[in-house]
Simulated assay, not measured.
Amino acid sequence: MFRFKCKSRKGCVLVLLTLIFVFIINRFVRNISRTDIMNHGIMSDSNSAYSKTLTGCWSSSRACVRLFDTSKDYSNASQINVCVYQIVPTIKKAIICIYDPKTDIYISKSILNNGNWEGALIGEVLNLLRTDQHMEFLDLGCNIGVYTISVATLGRRVTALDANRKNLEMLLTSLQIGNLTRNVTMLWNALSDKSEVVNLKEDAGNVGGMAIVSGQELAPDFENSTIAVTLDDLEVMFRKKKLLIKMDIERYEMKALLGAKRFFEYVNIRYLIMEWMHHAETDTGLEIIQFLSARGFVPYAPNDRTRPLQQETRNKWPNDILWKQTDSGIDK
């Protein structure tokens, strides 16, 4: 036990006041540091399972959330085939860098030939954002950034997450050319139901859309691996914010939702757009319906928000689904 002796009552008071002052200053500095980290959406802890020396990594006891450095220049990255205009109705043209269409036969080829990818769905996203100037966009599985670039061009805040570093390098180059980096926060992570190192498996013909393989032992800076986090690990970034979420994470949607219970409780998610074609006739699809309907979400076709979709016809739902937050769950 710490003891001290005072020669006078006045001396004791001064010593006591000094100790109180030091204690208050120490707590103040610690709170400032914590607040600064939270404002950037990333928690840190010296006892993390992952080292802070990893590229762009700030860590907590639960996860390692990687903030992608937007000050770097990747304009000479070997995977960039060409940078062209992306054309989306109602907003000005924006530059987007694409892969060789021979290796990316879906997104890059469509942009090169048609000027956009999923242009109609992007238009619906922009229309929804225009209904509320405070709503932000969370792009989970951003790929090369067709949605992120469009929303940033609209002047709205975007957080873009992807497991594939090459995608983020290309997206960053596009944002820098279009002077849009100030609108976008980029995260280099996969999503799962737990924090872990995951392997990335290339899909032939869809070079930007790698599948996630769980339970790997590879180093998290290996070219074909990265660190998975949960949506609950990101909750501090978005607490009490209004969000429109686009989730396209290569059949990993349910695993991501299992790690998002606190996220759905504390974040004001107004809309969630999700690929449905992989889940239409699976047990996982039913689990997704149960998870979201229990939290007050109702499914619609993105271009028809007047008639909810029915669970019994889920195998005939469109390829993409818009889940809208309401006071009641899905119609049975």
Rank of each mutant, 00 (worst) to 15 (best):
E124F: 04
M43A: 14
T173M: 11
E281K: 10
K52N: 14
K255Q: 00
H278M: 03
I32L: 02
L19Q: 07
I144Y: 13
H279D: 03
T326L: 11
F297K: 13
D304M: 11
D327K: 10
P220F: 11
E223R: 10
V125T: 13
K7E: 08
I177T: 08
I149R: 06
E265H: 12
M135C: 07
I321Q: 12
L180W: 04
N268S: 15
K240I: 03
D203K: 04
Q290T: 12
F297P: 15
E124K: 13
K255E: 01
E265S: 14
F264V: 01
F137Q: 02
V13M: 04
S46D: 14
I245V: 11
I321L: 12
D162L: 06
N189K: 07
R314V: 09
C142R: 13
L187D: 02
A77L: 05
V197M: 11
S60H: 00
V229L: 07
L17R: 05
R130H: 10
N127T: 08
Y252R: 07
M274G: 15
T181V: 13
N268Y: 15
P89T: 02
V125E: 08
D232Q: 06
E287Q: 09
F2G: 01
T284D: 01
W117H: 15
F238E: 10
V158W: 01
L175A: 08
H134Y: 00
L138E: 08
L140T: 05
S225I: 07
F297Q: 11
D331T: 14
A280L: 00
I96H: 12
S44T: 10
T70R: 09
D233M: 12
E287Y: 10
L218P: 07
I111R: 08
D45F: 12
R130N: 13
L272T: 11
E235R: 13
A163L: 12
D221L: 05
K93R: 07
T282L: 00
P302W: 15
A219M: 14
M43H: 15
L244D: 02
S293P: 12
H278A: 07
L140H: 05
L187R: 05
E169L: 09
L112M: 03
I80D: 14
F222P: 00
S214G: 09
M38Y: 08
L258H: 03
D193W: 04
D283Y: 02
C6S: 09
T230P: 02
V15T: 03
K261A: 01
T90W: 06
L19T: 00
T18N: 00
D327S: 13
